[in-house]
Each structure stands twice: as C-alpha cells, then as structure tokens.
Design a binder for these strands. Sequence first.
DNA 1: TTAGGGTTAG
Length: 706
Amino acid sequence: MKALLASLLESSLNSFQKLSVTHCYAIKCGSVSDIYVSNRILDSYIKFGFLGYAHKLFDEMPQRDSVSWNTMISGYISCGKLENSWCLFTDMKRCGCYVDGYSFSRLLKGIASAKRFDLGEQVHGLVIKGGYECNVYVGSSLVDMYAKCERVEDAFEAFMEISEPNSVSWNALIAGFVQVRDIETAFWLLGLMEMKAAVTMDDGTFAPLLTLLDDPMFCNLLKQVHAKVLKLGLEHEITICNAMISSYADCGSVSDAKRVFDGLGGSRDLISWNSMIAGFSKHEQKESSFELFTEMHRNWIEADIYTYTGIVSACSGEEHQSFGKSLHGLVIKKGLEQVTSVSNALVSMYIQFPTGVMNDALSLFESLKSKDLVSWNSIMTGFSQKGLSEDAVKFFSYLRSSNIEVDDYAFSAVLRSCADLATLQLGQQTHALSTKSSFESNEFVTSSLILMYSKCGVIENARKCFDQISSKHSTIAWNAMILGYAQHGSGQVSLDLFSQMCNQNVKLDHVTLTAILTACSHTGLIQEGLELLNSMESVYKIQPRMEHYAATVDLLGRAGLVNKAKELIESMPLSPDPMVMKTFLGVCRACGEIEMATQVANHLLEIEPEDHFTYVSLSHMYSDLKKWEEKANVKKMMKERGVKKVPGWSWIEIRNQVNAFNAEDRSHPLSKEIYLMIENLTQEMQWLDSDNGFDQASLMGVNFVF
DNA sequence: TTAGGGTTAG
C-alpha cells in the first residue's frame, strides 16, 4: 500500500485530478496521519494554486512539523499575502515549532516584495538569535530584503556576514545598487564578482544591470556588456535578451534592439514582445509597433496589461485616432479598463488627440476607481497642454487639500500652468512648496521654474534657479534658460549660453536649436541663424523640423527679407506645414507684400478653413490698406463658414486673484477710473517720448489691449 | 517533503 501511495505522490505532481485521487486514497488508507504524506499533498495543492484546499488540509492535520508550517507560509508568500504568512509565522513560534532557515528565507522574500523594512528588521533580529545569518539562503534573502527596501548599506553588511556567498548573494547585492541607480558601485561589484573563482556570473547578474543602461550616454558601456554576455555564452538567456531589448531601445538604437528580438526566434516570451513594442513606440516608430502587435495576435500570443499599456501609448497623433479608439474597445472587451496603468495610458492617448478638448480623457479619468499618481499627473499635464491651465492649478490644489501625494511630475505640470497664466504669486508659492518637498532639484521641476519666472518677467529669478542646478547636464534646463533669454530679447546671452553648453558637452536636442533660432530672430542675427539651420544635420546631427523652418522664416521676415523667406520655403525637403505658412503670411503682411500674402492666405484657407488666424490676418491687412470691400468679403466668408475670432485676453494678478480682460472691455466695476488712468499714462508717455523718437504706433499696443 | 537573485509600463 505504501509503495502505491509513493508512486501516486510522484505522478500527481503534474495533474490536479491525479492529486485529488491521491488525496482520497491517502484518506481511505489512513495515510493522511503520516506527516510526510500530508506535507507532500499540501505542497502539491500550493503548487497548483489551491491555497484553500491546502489550508483545509493543514487545519485537519493531527500533527504538523516545520515543513508543514514552512510550506503554508511559502504558499501565502507566493500569492502576495504577507499578513497571512506573518500570522502563521507568529503561530508557528507560539506552538513551539522549530523555526529554521526555510521559514526565514520564505518570510523575508514576502517582506522584500512588500518593502516592509520594519518587519524585515524584526526578522533579522530573530535570524541572528537563531544563528542563521551565515546561512547562504537566509543571508541572501536578507541581502535581497534590504536591497528591495533601498537600504544598500545594510544589504552590504548582511552580505559580509554570509560565510560563503554564492552567485545568488552577489546578484541580490548588485541588484540593490541597481535599484538605487548607483551605477559605479554596481559595476565595481561586477568586477569583484568576476575575480571570484567560486562564483559565476549568470543571467541574474546581467539582467538587472542592463536596466541601468537606459540613456544614449551608456551606448558604449551597453556594447561592452553585450560583448561580455557573448563571451560567457549567455546570449540565449531570455531575461538577458529581454533586458537588452529595452536597453538598446533606451540607448537610442532600435535596430540593435530588433536584432536581439529577432535572434530570439521561437524562444520569445511575452516580455520580449512587450519590450520591443515599447521600444518602437518610444522612438516614434509607431507603425512598427502596430505591426508587431498584429503579429502577436497572428501568433496567438495573449496580450497582457503591459502590452496594452505599450501599444496604447503609441497612439498619439491624429492618424492613430481610429486605431486608438479600437484599442480602447479591446481593452473594455478584455475587462482591463479598470487596470490603472492601462487606463492611464488611455487617458494620455485621448489628451494627445487633436480633436475634442478633454472630455474623453476626463470621463475616463473620472470612471477610474483606483487612481494613482500617474493618473492625476496625466490629467494635470493634459489640462496644462490644452491651455486649460486654471483647471490644472485647481486639480493641484485639490490634491494638496486632500493630502494626496504630489511628485515632480505634478510640480512640473502646475508650474507650467503658472507660466501659462503668468501668475507670479502662485508660481512663487508653488516654488516654495517644491523646495519644501525636495523636488526643486529635479530637472523637470527646475526647467518649469525657469519657464515660469521668465514668462512672468522675472528673468533674474529664472537665472537663479538655473545657477542652482547641481548637475549641469540637464538639456531641458539649458533649453528653458536659453529660450527665456531669447524671449526677453537678450539673444546674445542665449548664444553665450549655447557656446557654454557645447563646451561643457551638454547634449543638444531639437528644442535647443529652436531656442537658438528664436534668439537669432529676436536679436537680428540673420547670418548666424541661417548658418545654424544649414549646419544642423552636419554639425549637430539633428534633422531640421517644421519649427526650425518656421523660426528661420520668422528670422528672415523680421529682417524684411521676404524673398529669402520664400526661397527657403521652396527649398524645404518636406512640404511646409500650416505653422510655416502662417509664419510666412505674417512676414508678407509685415513687409507689405500684399499679392504674396493673398496667395498664401488662399492656400491656408483651403487647407485649414476652420482656423480663424488666416481670416483675421487678411482682415487686418485690408484694414491697413483701407480696402473695405475686401475686408467685408473676409468677414462674410467667416460668417458663412461659422468661423469665430477667438478674442485675445489679457490678465493681471492682484492679491492672488487673476483679473482677465479683453479689448474694449468695460465690464469691470472700476472701468471708468481704469480708462482714465490709461489716458493719463498715455499722455505722460507721449510727453516723455517726444524726445526719444517714439511715435504713436508704439502706443497702439497699449490702446489695443484695453 | 519545504528555501535565495533577475527582464516589460508616465
């Protein structure tokens, strides 16, 4: 009978039905009272994921030993139920059962996943009391626990206690330094590990290390690591390949990522597909990520939440609107709409669609039951990007008053909104708050602060924020400062900063060059601007985009070189977009090239009949020329097409209150006094400027605003 | 009969 049971126990490991039969047979022949038999059945139930059956059997066992308790603790840890495991562990000790190395290592694994440093320290005390700190299993679990809790020094101490650390101990320690992004120490440890003959570097060593190499500046290091992987014969390890796909994509080499992905062939797993889809998506190769998603479907690979998050993030433009909406349908069908990460990606997708203001994104956000920081940040960024800055500020205030955590993304979004609203007082308050919360040094927060101060006219405070940056390698901070000076008319300072940026080897991007072209334009540095545009590809390896052409058209226009601007547009390798054409229309108007302006305007009216800009420009041009009939025709056309001019609003912040007004606005209760004051000021300016050569035209702006 | 580390999301 015992021989039959032993053989049943062996064969029941691969089928739940067989396990049930074995359990029944064990009950029938009274073998469940045998602690060895019950422990094996208990373990099998847990391996099949039937924790309820396992716990019932555990409760019914007349006798339990350490293996029974450890198996149950392990079962609860595997499904993330640390509280249950902790209760079992406490009961185990109360019952006087011997707590051994197995108990500690399983419990520590759960504590590490939950990042419960407080519990970890308690267990560490018990480990020392029991004399298990030298045990390689317990010791490695302690290293892992401290590493996951980001206590790398404690992890190092625990590592030093292990009498003979093996590769798992080393890997856990290295992963700890990876977690806190201490690249130097992580690679130093790798070097030490390599020198130890007793331990071998494996997939568990390289997979976490590779996640650190997520920037083009690590491209060479990544290639060296890849070479080491090849030398050690680890190039077919799936976790290494998956990490390598992400690293190559993050380092800017999607082609290398694809090579690794292709090299995997049939051994690809879901993570490989997800990583490749995300890699294509990050590098604007949206179509390739859509193709891969379709291929996944063709290969009957079931997409998971990572897949949907990645593919939804790839849908950002007008051309992806319909596919994005289909994906939303698929997400609903799969019952994943309430998964926070998936829903967050959908919210960001709807925000980036050009049509519709925020309604789709907002209703999705509101229906999401479990919102995290990303959800709030996405919706605030959306408000900020869509020009609904007041709403972004309101959401931020709500988060603060509700004691919901705010992070660097939230600060960045709200400071950008303060910049948009030009609300200096609110911006200063947010600045103080960011300092208090230690987010001031974050590069995104700093660049938003620079943006806010320069938009509010306090360029010297923007400079103070810039000067306080500890790491001067943040491209976005340099960009913000250069743009700030350019918009303030201090183009030469912008150009000086640009030289410093080049000398200090700070990475440039397309935004830097747009800012420099703007600086040249606002300072009349025509030759410098043109040279920069011509050398973008050869010197800076950046392909000119539409905004660069628009900035250069503006530069030429401000210098009155309308024909040069026309030549530039004609020589563009891509057909000019409406932004370039609208800039050129402004140039034609300013230079009095009526015929050319009319041609450009007609073209714009054809491609963008709904945009009020062209109608307003034409109308102003005809007013200037006193061509009343043509002006009336434009007005008629606007009426027929239902196009409305969006009034230009101005605002002023008084005692933390924003007062908005537009041209000829007389709604303010004190408007009589306000207009009287303007009249007085205007007279005073005329009197002051009579010696300085200012003419009436320079005062028109003042009159127009009010 | 029960243990430890590693890869994908703004």
